[in-house]
Computed example of a mutant assay.
Amino acid sequence: MELKTKRLTDPTHVSPTLVLKSDDRRDLNTIKALASEPRVRILSELAEGLHSVGDLSRSLGLPLSTVSQHVKKLESCGLVHIEEKPGERGLQRICQRVYDRIVIDMPTHSEPSHEHPIWEFSWPVGAYSDASVTPTCGLTSEIGLIGLTDDPSSFYEPNHPSAQLIWFKSGYLEYRIPNRLPHSVRPRNLWLTMEICSEAPMYHPDWPSDITLWINDVELGSWTSPADFGDQRGLLNPSWWEDRNTQHGLLKGWRVTERGSFIDGIRLSDVTCDDLQLMKNRFISVRIGVKDDARHVGGINLFGQKFGNYEQDIVLRVEYI
């Protein structure tokens, strides 16, 4: 169980989020507790503020004993905080919801096996070394826009490394990261994860885009993003970011092995880890983009750790022997 923000009992806290991992036995108990319509209704009622167990019984039309059992289960999982306060007829049990959002992280095929040593490197989305993009395009940091919207020259502003969200219709961003792999080793597996989606004007639920990834100038293949997501507000977006804009992406994981290249377990190409020649240079080049001649030229949004739904930058992992 991973807590992304402070608890509700902290008066400085806003909009707490609970992240549950489906492969954690303790978190599974919480997930099971949510598999109940009355408990979900109780949590919805508590969105309006504090309620006694008696209040919940009357508003939900359920027996007091039934509501008490459900509240007790929610309290045992840490989803509800209960305090006893004096009432007209003795002590009242006052209920308070602890979390505003609950996210369930599902395991993916992209996770390292940890059978061999793993080198990991994380870098901000704004820390690119080269850019060639077409409008619609733009960059924003956590506090505001960088340069001008739909002006590719803004991608060369001196503060572009502070970008937390980047978007463009076609072209690419290239990152050159320092190669810190030990000398005389053989890379065996590579993983790369980032939060991305298509780029439409504002946002669009049906906006395919063929997003391509290259490592050391070797094309791994393309993944078709289904949409530019704006249906629900991104969990990490700053308050000034308007609801009419793109809100979040999908956390995608590329993997290059001795058998080929994959995205979320789906085969992309026959490119292997040996083909990347990771030990050739003192840097590893990672290029992400949309080809001008792609079937779906639907752009790209790339999210940093302060935007979207996933609190991470671009992450590269290499397993070696």
Rank of each mutant, 00 (worst) to 15 (best):
H116R: 11
W167Q: 06
H160N: 10
D27C: 12
G87Y: 02
P187I: 04
E242T: 13
D105R: 08
E319A: 00
G171S: 01
K21Q: 12
M194D: 09
S76K: 13
D55S: 14
S65I: 12
N237H: 03
V103I: 10
Q164N: 09
S36L: 09
W207H: 14
K252D: 08
S132N: 14
K73D: 15
N179L: 11
C273R: 03
E311H: 10
E319C: 00
P112M: 00
I284Q: 00
Q247S: 05
L190F: 05
Y172D: 06
P124Y: 08
P117L: 07
G298C: 02
V14G: 08
S170W: 00
T5A: 14
R39I: 08
S209C: 03
R25L: 13
G265P: 06
R25H: 11
I288T: 03
E174I: 04
S65A: 14
L276P: 07
G90W: 01
D210A: 11
I82M: 09
S209Y: 04
T149G: 06
S59P: 10
I104V: 11
R287D: 04
D23M: 08
D151T: 03
R41H: 11
L43E: 04
F155A: 02
C137G: 00
P238H: 03
E199V: 08
N245M: 12
S110V: 07
P152S: 00
R295H: 11
G78V: 02
D55G: 05
F307Q: 05
S68M: 10
K280A: 15
S285D: 05
E75T: 13
R295L: 11
R255D: 09
D231I: 05
G61Q: 05
H204Q: 12
K280I: 12
S22M: 15
Y203S: 08
Q247G: 05
D100N: 13
V125Y: 02
I314T: 12
L220N: 06
D292S: 10
K291W: 02
E111P: 00
D228L: 00
R317A: 07
N216E: 03
I284L: 01
V286T: 06
L236N: 05
E142N: 09
I211L: 13
R97P: 08
S129R: 10
H204R: 08
G87H: 02
L8N: 13
Q96C: 13
K21M: 06
G90H: 00
W254S: 05
P201Q: 07
S261R: 01
E45N: 11
A127N: 13
W207D: 06
W241L: 05
R7V: 12
S222P: 02
Q69Y: 10
S153G: 01
S15I: 10
K32Y: 15
T224S: 06
L50E: 13
